[in-house]
Structures are given as structure tokens and as C-alpha cells.
């Protein structure tokens, strides 16, 4: 379960999409999916300063993707996939539906094209008469 305050709940999906819109943040989420990491460990693969990475972590935290626990001076980060699940569940139902529909339309149009071609072939000899 993800906990939101009332004002946050209004724009949860905005925050989710905003957080996912950046390749660095997606890479950070990918790393967190493998397990807990410190901010320093998350920064390591990127040619970026720790403050720059910290900004990305804040965006992820605000969207509810990241849970930080302080261990002395070290921040331990963990992934909360809740927002991702909510967003992807929602999107996938509509997206799959329309992709399926357009796939059906594509197959139908291909069949019609084939029929047309076969009819054209049949008509060829008569047009030579």
C-alpha cells in the first residue's frame, strides 16, 4: 500500500509520469528493483555529481517510488513499486484494448487487399478480350 496525503492524491498520476519521464530516473528504479542501495551506490553508474543524483532521488521520492531510511549519515533507498503498478495497470487495460482493436483492423484490411488483388487477377483475362 502506498500512503498519500489528500493533496498528493490529486496529482499522483502526474507525479508518476513525471518521475518515469527521465532515463536516469528509470535507470535508478531499475537498480532499486534489484535491492536496497545507498545514494552513493545509486549515483555510481552515472557521470553526475551526488547533488544532481539527489535531485532525481527527490523526484522519485515525491512520486512515492522511493523510500529512504537514515542510517547515521547514510541514506538507504528502497523501491516502492506501488505507483508504477497503479499506473501500468491503468494504462495497460486501455492500451491493450486499442492495440488489439487496431490489430484486428490491420488483419481485416490485409484480407480485403488480398481479395481485391485476386479479383483483379480474375478480371485481367476478360479485360484483354
Amino acid at each position: 500500500m502506498v500512503k498519500y496525503s489528500a493533496s498528493e492524491a490529486d496529482s499522483t498520476l502526474d507525479l508518476t509520469f513525471q518521475a518515469l519521464a527521465d532515463p536516469t530516473r528509470r535507470a535508478i528504479l531499475g537498480r532499486l528493483a534489484e535491492g536496497e542501495a545507498t545514494a552513493g551506490e545509486l549515483a555510481a553508474p552515472f557521470e553526475m555529481s551526488l547533488p544532481a543524483v539527489s535531485k532525481h532521488l527527490k523526484v522519485l521520492e515525491k512520486a512515492g517510488f522511493l523510500i529512504r531510511a537514515r542510517d547515521g549519515r547514510v541514506h538507504r533507498c528502497n523501491l516502492d513499486a506501488g505507483p508504477m503498478q497503479a499506473a501500468s495497470d491503468w494504462i495497460s487495460t486501455y492500451r491493450n484494448f486499442w492495440e488489439g482493436q487496431l490489430g484486428s483492423l490491420a488483419r481485416y484490411l490485409e484480407t480485403e487487399q488480398k481479395k481485391k488483388k485476386e479479383e483483379d487477377k480474375k478480371n485481367e483475362p476478360s479485360s484483354n478480350d
Partner: peptide, 19 residues
């Protein structure tokens, strides 16, 4: 929310519209 999907069909615009 807004969902946008683009798809290119190998058929004429008249055939796709008629479908």
C-alpha cells in the same frame, strides 16, 4: 487522462475510413 495511439495501415485512406 489522454491515450494516443498511432498506427500505419497498408491500405488507402478511403478503405480505412470505410472500415
Amino acid at each position: 487522462c489522454v491515450l494516443e495511439i498511432e498506427h500505419v495501415f497498408k491500405a488507402t485512406i478511403e478503405d480505412v475510413y470505410a472500415a
